[in-house]
Design a protein around this nucleic acid. Structure first.
Lengths: 347, 347
DNA sequence: TTGTACGCGTTATCAG
DNA sequence: CTGATAACGCGTACAA
C-alpha cells in the first residue's frame, strides 16, 4: 500500500484538506462529530503527516544543526566533541529538537550549509570573514559559534584561550622546566594560520615563555598532530626521535596529551619522572589515566549548552543574546613534576 | 531584505519557475542565453533554494537518522556510542549525507520517529514487536537496527552477545574466581526484561557460570548501573559496601568497568591484585587506563559502518541486505588475574 | 464551521 | 528544441 496523505483522508471522509488538518492541529475550529469521524478514518488508514511537507508549511524543522570542522568519523576521536554534543543535547531534549551533525563535504562547509534543513546552526571554530559565515547569513539562518572569534555580528561561546594557555605554561615553567615541547593540533606549522583558538593558545604559551626568557619561545620544539589518540602517540614518537628530548610536553588538547602519555609509557619512559605532560580541556579521560593528567579545565558541556541556549533564543526572538566567556582553570594532577635535575633522560 | 525565492528570480528574469529551476538542475533543457541570464540574476540576488522545499520535491533529504535509546546528554557518556557514530559518519561522508541524532521525547521514541525528516533510520537496540518498529514501518522508512533482535523483517547488525559474554566469564572462572559480581547496565533488575543485548549477555554469563557449578549463577551478586563512568563508580561503591566482597567484577560494558576501576583505586584497592575487573566493548579507553582492561572486543565502529552501508542500499534498492554478525573476541590485558589465595581482601 | 488558495522547488506533461 | 502549466505535500490566512 502506498503512503497515505491528507488528501486521501479528505477524499474518504468527504471533508476538505483544511478540515482534516484542523482535526489534528486545531480541533476547536471544527465540530466534534466531524473531528471524530476524521480521526477514526485517519487511524484506520495509518495516516502520518509527511514531516517535510509539515516543516515547509510551518517554517520550523524541529532540528538544529552542528556544523563540524572535520568529518564525523574523525571529529569524534576527540571526546571533547562528545562533551559539546552532550551539552547541546541537553537543550535539544528540553526543546524537543533533534540534532543534525553536518560534516564538511569535499573539505568545504558550503554544501552542508546550503542543504541544511534546520532551524539554526551551531558552528565550531568559525570566524568573521570566512566564506561559510557569509553563506549562513545569506541563508538567514540563526547561528552561534563555539570557539570562534568575536566580531562578526554573531554570538560566540568560548573561554579566554590566551590566558588559559598562559596559566598552564607558567605552571610548567614554575616547576623548573626549560626544555619544552608544544604539541599543537592541526596541520599548519605557522603561527599566523589556523583557527583562532589555536593561535590564541599558542600566543598564550609564548607569552608565558617570554616571561621567563625572551629567547625561550624560539627554543621550544613545536610538533603538529591530528587531534586524536593516535595523533598524540605519533607526536610523542616524533619527540623521542628528536635530537634533544624535552623534559616537559605541553599539549594543546587532552586527547593529544593522553596519547602522548600512552606512547611514552609504551617506550618505557616514566611520566612525570622522566617527562612531564600537560594537556588542555579536562575531558573525563584526563582523570582516568595514570598518572592523572594536569590540564586546563574548560567546560565543553557548558559550551554546548550555552551555545544551544543562545541559538534557541536567537531562533525565538531574533535578538542576539551576546557573547559568553566561560571559566577555565588550571587543574594540577599527577602528570607534571619538577624536572629530574640529574638530567638522566637526555641522551 | 527578505528571503529570495525561485519566484523572485522568475519574476525578475521574466521566465517561469520551471525555466529558472532548469537553469540550475537541467541546463540542457533551456537555451544558453536564457541560462546565463537567469544565473546572473540569481547570483546578484543571492538566491539559495530552500532546502526543505527542495527535499519535499525530490523526496530525498540527504540525511539519515540515528534513533537513540537515551537522551543525547546521557547517551554520549558512553564512548561506545561515539564509535558507532564514527562508523556511520564514514558512510555519511562518502554519500554526502548528514546525520540526525534523534533522542526520545518524554521517554518515547514515537514523536521523534513521527517528525524525522530523514531518508532512513538506524536504530540502537530496537526489537521486533516494539511499538516504535511498527511506527517506523508505517511511515515506510527504511531502517536498520544495531544491537537488535533478528526476526522483525528488518536488517540487524550485531555480534553474538551470548557467546562473547560466555567467553569473558569463562576467562574469569578459569583464573579461579568464584566470588563474582556482575554489573549490568539498565535499571531493570530482572533477567527477562530489558534489551536483547543485555539479556543475551546475562544469559552468556550464566551459562558459563553453570558450566562450573550449577548453583554458581545464583551465588553471583548482581548490580545495575547507568552506562557511564559514574554509573560504574556507584556500582563499585555498592559492591564495596556489600557483605562479602567479590574477587572479580564482570561489567557489561567498558565504560562501567573503567568507572569501577577508578572507584576501586580511589578506595585503595588494587586491581587486579585485590579484585579483578573485566569489561565489554573494547573502547579506546580500555587500553589507556592502568591497569589496561581485559575485555571483549566488539567493533562499534564497524557496527556503525555496516549499519549505514546496509541502510544506504536499502534506500537505494528497497532490497533488504540481510543481517550482519560481526566478530568479537576476548582481549586479555592486565586488569584480570588469579584471585589472591590468602583471601586477604575479604573482610 | 468549512472551503479556497497560496507558499516552496522539482519535474512529468503539454504547447508552441 | 524551448519554455510553461500543474501537481506534489502540508498548514493556515482569508473568504464564504
Amino acid at each position: 500500500m502506498a503512503r497515505v496523505t491528507i488528501k486521501d483522508i479528505a477524499r474518504i471522509s468527504g471533508y476538505s484538506k483544511t478540515t482534516v488538518s484542523f482535526a489534528f492541529n486545531d480541533p476547536s475550529r471544527i465540530g466534534r462529530d466531524t473531528r471524530e469521524k476524521i480521526l477514526r478514518i485517519a487511524d484506520e488508514l495509518g495516516y502520518i503527516p509527511d514531516p517535510v511537507a509539515r516543516n515547509l508549511s510551518l517554517r520550523r524543522h524541529g532540528t538544529i544543526g552542528l556544523l563540524l570542522p572535520e568529518v564525523i568519523s574523525f571529529a569524534f576521536y576527540n571526546p571533547y566533541l562528545s562533551q559539546i554534543v552532550q551539552g547541546i543535547g541537553e537543550v535539544c531534549e528540553r526543546e524537543n529538537h533533534s540534532l543534525t551533525l553536518i560534516p564538511p563535504i569535499r573539505e568545504s562547509l558550503m554544501e552542508g550549509i546550503r542543504r541544511a534543513a534546520v532551524d539554526g546552526l551551531i558552528t565550531i571554530g568559525l570566524e568573521p570573514g570566512m566564506e561559510a559565515v557569509e553563506f549562513i547569513q545569506r541563508r538567514h539562518l540563526p547561528f552561534v559559534a563555539i570557539d570562534g572569534r568575536v566580531g562578526g555580528g554573531f554570538p560566540v561561546v568560548g573561554i579566554d584561550d590566551f590566558t588559559a594557555a598562559g596559566t598552564v605554561m607558567r605552571h610548567v615553567l614554575d616547576l623548573g622546566h626549560r626544555r619544552i615541547a608544544i604539541v599543537a593540533f592541526g596541520r599548519e606549522p605557522k603561527l599566523s594560520t589556523g583557527s583562532h583558538v589555536k593561535s590564541q593558545r599558542l600566543s598564550g604559551y609564548r607569552e608565558a615563555l617570554e616571561g621567563v626568557d625572551p629567547e625561550l619561545p624560539d627554543e621550544v620544539t613545536y610538533v603538529y598532530a591530528a587531534p586524536s589518540l593516535d595523533g598524540g602517540r605519533q607526536a610523542a614518537r616524533t619527540l623521542l626521535d628528536g635530537r634533544e628530548r624535552p623534559t616537559a610536553i605541553v599539549a594543546m588538547s587532552d586527547i593529544l596529551a593522553v596519547g602522548i602519555i600512552d606512547a611514552l609509557q609504551g617506550a618505557g619512559i616514566s611520566v612525570p619522572d622522566d617527562i612531564s605532560v600537560v594537556g588542555f580541556d579536562d575531558i573525563p579521560e584526563a582523570s582516568l589515566v595514570r598518572p592523572q593528567l594536569t590540564t586546563v579545565s574548560q567546560p565543553g558541556y557548558e559550551k554546548g549548552r550555552h551555545a544551544a541556549d543562545s541559538l534557541m533564543s536567537l531562533i525565538a526572538d531574533q535578538e542576539s543574546p551576546g557573547h559568553i566567556v566561560l571559566h577555565a582553570e588550571l587543574v594540577v594532577r599527577a602528570s607534571s613534576a619538577a624536572p629530574d635535575t640529574v638530567s638522566s633522560n637526555s641522551r
